[in-house]
């Protein structure tokens, strides 16, 4: 198991380096000139050259990547000795827009991002798996049709639509909830919670159907297996049969999909929900950086998202090992 983990982590590291190279070359091969952006409106050719030099843009692409890569581990200095800015490791570069290290910006957006992703993921996972199990054991009956129907109805609505309707009804009309907002958990847990309810609900509505249907079909398959018949033949209660023997085996495909969804959510895929509710997460940061052609931030958010998806995959593999002894022992 330990060797398996090391192998998986090494593979993940290699994948991340490759992704960083590819993103780096794509973004820095774009036609617009970052130095021109940084220089501003009244820009003399001399000044432009200076900026190019201070940003390291006059070096070869490979050299530039090497500087970037080094910066990840040891940090780097921008500019000359006189006006140098230090970007400490892990350095993802400096934002052209704000002249702050990209890492600082990312870390600033991370708590809101994580709160949104984690909260909604916990809810849609529990709810989706629960509904899916009910639907499977009540197959063809009312509970099944209701669970699947409700989940489908949810997914057919767009998230901004759900978000706006909820906001209008619960916040503007009936004043049941405060206007959605991100408050740090450490500042005020109560406000953190109430401010995130609507964004969570919006994301849950979006993901619920997938998890309900996935759990339902996986459960139906497992409940037809011989070992379920054996479990019943032992005289086990139906609860033990369904959860200990059925769900335990049915959870494997759910773990895979959940790992990818959760990684992507942290990586900023909730961008529409973030925008609707004005939450400054990674998704919103990425969109803003594209609008502003702030290439270091684009690169940073892309790598950040990639890192989480790769990490989520490693975790999924580990969870597989925990669930299935055939994986662990091979």
């Amino acid at each position: 198991m330990f060797r398996y983990l090391i192998r998986r982590l090494l593979a993940a590291a290699v994948i991340l380096v490759v992704i960083s190279m590819v993103t780096f070359f794509i973004f820095f091969a774009l036609p617009n000139d970052p130095a021109l952006l940084a220089c501003g409106k009244t820009c003399s050719p001399n000044r432009l050259l200076e900026i190019r030099h201070s940003l390291g843009l006059d070096k070869s692409l490979a050299m530039q990547y090497w500087e970037f890569f080094k910066g990840l581990f040891i940090g780097r200095n921008y500019g000359d000795q006189s006006v140098s800015i230090h970007c400490s490791a892990p350095c993802l570069g400096m934002s052209f827009q704000t002249d702050t290290p990209v890492m600082t910006t990312l870390l600033g957006a991370f708590p809101a991002d994580l709160s949104l992703a984690l909260g909604s993921a916990v809810i849609f996972l529990i709810l989706g798996v629960g509904l899916g199990v009910i639907a499977a054991i009540r197959k063809g009956r009312f509970a099944d049709k209701f669970a699947v129907g409700a989940a489908l109805f949810g997914v057919s609505l767009q998230s901004y639509f759900v978000g706006l309707i909820l906001m209008w009804a619960l916040v503007d009309k009936w004043n049941l909830l405060p206007s959605p907002n991100y408050t740090s958990l450490t500042d005020d847990p109560g406000q953190w919670f109430t401010g995130l309810i609507l964004p969570w609900v919006t994301l849950v509505v979006l993901y619920l159907a997938l998890y309900t249907r996935l759990t339902r079909s996986s459960m139906l398959e497992v409940m037809g297996e011989d070992y379920i018949r054996t479990a019943r033949a032992k005289g086990l209660s139906s609860r033990t049969v369904i959860f200990k023997h059925g769900l335990r085996a049915a959870i494997t495909p759910i773990v895979t999909i959940f790992g990818m969804d959760f990684g992507a959510l942290i990586g900023g895929s909730a961008v529409i929900t973030e925008s609707v509710f004005g939450i400054n997460g990674i998704g919103k940061l990425a969109v803003d950086s594209v609008t502003n052609s702030d290439e270091p931030v684009i690169l940073g958010t892309t790598l950040f998202a990639a890192a989480f998806i790769v990490l989520a995959n490693v975790v999924v593999d580990l969870v597989y090992g925990l669930i299935d002894p055939r994986v662990r022992l091979s």
């Binding site: 297996e225 070992y227 018949r229 054996t230 033949a233 085996a249 299935d324 002894p325 055939r326």
Partner: peptide, 16 residues
């Protein structure tokens, strides 16, 4: 009690 046909599929793969 019953001894099932095909014990590989009749035993749960995830439990000892």
């Amino acid at each position: 009690s019953m001894i099932f046909q095909d014990p590989l599929s009749a035993l749960h793969p995830f439990y000892s």
